[in-house]
Amino acid sequence: MKAVIPQLSWHEVRPAAVVLVSGTETVLAERAMRILRDTLRDADPSLEVTDVDAADYVPGELASLASPSLFGEPRLIRVSGAERANDAFVDDLIGYLQAPADDTTLLVRHGGGQRGKRFLDAIRSGTGGGVEVVCAELKRDADKYDFAQAEFRMAGKRVTPGALRAVTSAFTDDLAELAAACQQLISDAGDEVTESTVDRYYGGRVETNAFRVADAALAGRYGEALITLRHALASGADPVPMVAAFASKLRTMARLYGARGSSAQLASQFGLAPWQVDRARRDLQGWTEEGLARSIEVVADTDADVKGAARDPEFALERMIAVLSARGEIVRS
């Protein structure tokens, strides 16, 4: 059924009688639950927190935990594993929604699936006065950039756009690693996190080196790209993700080639961050449609080469860089 209660993102979580935290993205769910706990505790340090596993729920447990306490402390009841809930929990929760307890926040974590549809529909219908925090998997680079930006903002740490781009690129494949990297930078860095700060901590990441090579090559700086490539390979970089970095940037360039509109409009249209649109537009300067098509073919060939089709992956990489540095023009040796 279509939800009628507020649908919030993880960083918009706010207290309510019932807070449903749904979705498969564990990192975002953990962030949302921590923010909710801290918000309630800031409002009243005497907050009583209780954890319940929905799979091992005992009949009557919810009513017992939500009953008025002797000293009237506010309560946060955190229910985990609601996607594995037993029948007793489903029945008790549906009953609880008819008359939620005063001064009590019931947080229900549901990781996805159809189990618990009865109480999910009840919460989403507005019964109990709840809100839903949707924690779906982050697939778009723009969403991961926004996640990293929110991490620094909530910690009160200044971070430059270049640093955000660098750390997001370095950990784009794993949100948990991206979150951990942001927290380390927040904890260890000075007043402001800059691109050089990220480089100092994570400059050895394959992805970071790969995107540096790609940036130099696509800008036509062949010598710089070649030197950076050789340094990356000498540092242990795997050629496969190196090619993947080129493919990622070329895909973005191809999508934006000939597109008209503001950065914000195109970012929304293509699922990108505005800075990615601006970067792709800069990268596209001097390129032709034919050169872009040829470069995409060369990258595809190189991908096959570094995965075993050629004897010398490094030579294949250097040949690809030569073509891309010439903006797709045929390079004769």
Rank of each mutant, 00 (worst) to 15 (best):
Leu218Ala: 02
Gly286Arg: 10
Arg255Trp: 10
Leu256Cys: 05
Leu218Met: 14
Glu297His: 04
Gly286Cys: 12
Thr228Glu: 11
Thr197Met: 07
Met242Lys: 06
Leu266Thr: 11
Tyr222Cys: 11
Ala264Asp: 15
Val306His: 06
Arg205His: 02
Phe246Ser: 06
Val298His: 07
Ala217Gln: 02
Gly258Phe: 02
Thr197Tyr: 08
Val243Phe: 04
Ile296Gly: 05
Asn209Glu: 10
Val277Met: 07
Ile296Phe: 14
Asp301His: 13
His231Ala: 12
Pro274Asn: 13
Leu229Asp: 09
Leu233Gln: 11
Leu218Glu: 01
Arg212Phe: 06
Leu218His: 02
Tyr257Cys: 06
Trp287Gly: 05
Asp283Leu: 15
Gly258Thr: 03
Ile227Tyr: 03
Tyr201Gly: 01
Gly220Ala: 12
Asp283Val: 01
Thr252Gly: 12
Ala216Leu: 15
Glu290Thr: 13
Arg221Trp: 09
Ala244Gly: 12
Gly220Ser: 11
Lys307Glu: 09
Arg200Asn: 00
Gly286Tyr: 13
Gly286Phe: 14
Ala293Tyr: 09
Arg200Glu: 00
Arg230Lys: 06
His231Val: 12
Ala216Cys: 07
Ser268Asp: 12
Ile227Met: 02
Trp287Lys: 06
Ala216His: 12
Arg279Phe: 01
Ala216Ser: 14
Leu272Pro: 07
Ala237Cys: 08
Gln276Glu: 10
Arg205Trp: 00
Leu233Ala: 11
Val198Thr: 07
Glu289Thr: 01
